[in-house]
Write a protein that binds this DNA or RNA. Structure first.
Lengths: 265, 265
DNA sequence: CAGTGGTCTAGACCACTAG
DNA sequence: TAGTGGTCTAGACCACTGA
């Protein structure tokens, strides 16, 4: 139910007095309502949401207003429009892009897919710094994974794999109850797709802090580089709906054959 | 003059047959026309462009169509809307942001401004790799600058400056004719502001390739770190209108007290 | 006050998709 | 063919700015 500020009441919307969202443009209120449905899981990933006309009727606003709300949600990658078919909830599960947030590109333009190797997966208590980032209490249950991303090396005989990324991943235990090494290994497709379908956790956006540092002995061994070799350290915090942090990931990238690609606007 | 595909002619636009842009939505054609004016310099940075109604009349389309075109240009940071005042050409010259594309943040949240120190500025012939990036011929005239960005260190007595960034910048000589060390040193405000007002070159967007590498002896000395220390290498190619590359910048960042911040959507 | 961008509507027609 | 998103219009009113 749209709510308008006292002075700006476009007649048609003068009906409901409901204690809704704070006064804001109508389309932003609609955007908020749609976001709530997404958050609540009324419309699931990969499903179509109601048509624009349907939503317009439901919310008692014009199609143009619904349209503007959906425009913004599509710009934020929460929805995907497909002409002639409908508007769909964005998903990681069926996307062709293997790694949603990974910006690493090989020096030669090839689009080699990286293979995964799970190193370990265990339940633990959150250290203070991890807890702070995930906005949980220090000592709360977390799942800790470590894994390698490897690049197939066809020049070697027989075919070998060169480690490129070492990831350490922390997830809040409360959200990822049944997560085990087996389930991870069994699951085909991107990890974020699994989080979505198996645990109902959808990653919306992320923030990264990037540094250069020297490999310590353990990391050097896993990445097959000399100890002290320069590595790219990428600390990523990922968020779901409502800007809630749900994953902390610390990656070490070997940038001798790859680079991190960024676009600035 | 709007051009419509054969079957979709909204009557009002049926007039001109001019050999314009390929058939596309009206608002995109308008967007193209506005972009051309910006490119040609008809409307200069920081100036207001004509009002939406004025443009609508000029192009013989409705205000809503102009609006959508401007919406996109504003989203691309080419224009800035200011309610009640008008729509303005974006500029670097008067912005409060010191460094348009620099994503470096201090570990403590302080927003310390970095000082500049010009190391050298000379005309040279473009090496092959630089020429390729800038899309000029190998051996063409270029301007090469090197400079440091320094962070004021208040813990030292007396106040010292700690080098954080070492930049090596290559500019096509044809576009930056009168650029000298003196003019650079004299100019207050951001370098991109100077490029804009003095040389009519406006940076629109950039692409970066980021790696970790070990400091060589010369770089280590300039950045006051041990030789072999890990540094962030940021190679940035900046573009003006028409995706024309106009600056190649190779930066070495000391990330012991700062980090490169990125947002992923 | 007039002029600007910002929101909203109602209705038309188009392009694409699928039964 | 019916239903969807995509474009475009014309006109109304709002909120903000500055003379």
């Amino acid at each position: 139910m749209p709510v308008q500020p006292p002075s700006s009441t476009p007649a048609h919307a003068a009906e409901a007095g409901e204690a809704g969202p704070a006064f804001a443009p109508l389309y932003q209120q609609i955007k908020g309502l749609i976001t709530r449905e997404l958050q609540a899981g009324t419309w699931k990933p990969a499903e179509a949401i109601p048509s624009e006309l349907e939503l317009a009727a439901r919310y008692k606003v014009s199609q143009g207003t619904v349209r503007k709300a959906i425009d913004e949600l599509a710009a934020e990658n929460l929805l995907v429009r497909r002409q002639g078919k409908g508007t769909f909830v964005a998903t990681h599960a069926e996307q062709h892009i293997q790694y949603r947030f990974l910006r690493l590109m090989p020096d030669d333009g090839s689009d080699q897919r990286l293979a995964r190797r799970l190193l370990d997966c265990r339940r633990a208590r959150a250290p203070a710094d991890v807890a702070r980032a995930l906005e949980i209490k220090s000592g709360d249950a977390v799942v800790q994974l470590r894994r390698l991303l490897l690049m197939p090396d066809k020049s070697a005989a027989p075919a070998a794999e060169r480690p490129v990324v070492l990831d350490e991943i922390w997830l809040p235990g409360a959200l990822f109850k049944g997560l085990t090494a087996e389930r991870l290994a069994d699951y085909k497709g991107p990890m974020y797709g699994m989080f979505e379908t198996e645990f109902g956790v959808r990653m919306i956006r992320a923030e990264e802090k990037i540094r250069a540092l020297a490999a310590d002995a353990a990391d050097a061994e896993l990445l097959a580089v000399p100890a002290g070799a320069p590595l790219l350290s990428v600390e990523r915090l990922s968020f779901t709906y409502g800007d809630k942090p749900v994953e902390l990931r610390r990656g070490l990238y070997n940038t001798s054959g790859h680079f991190y690609r960024n676009e600035l606007n």
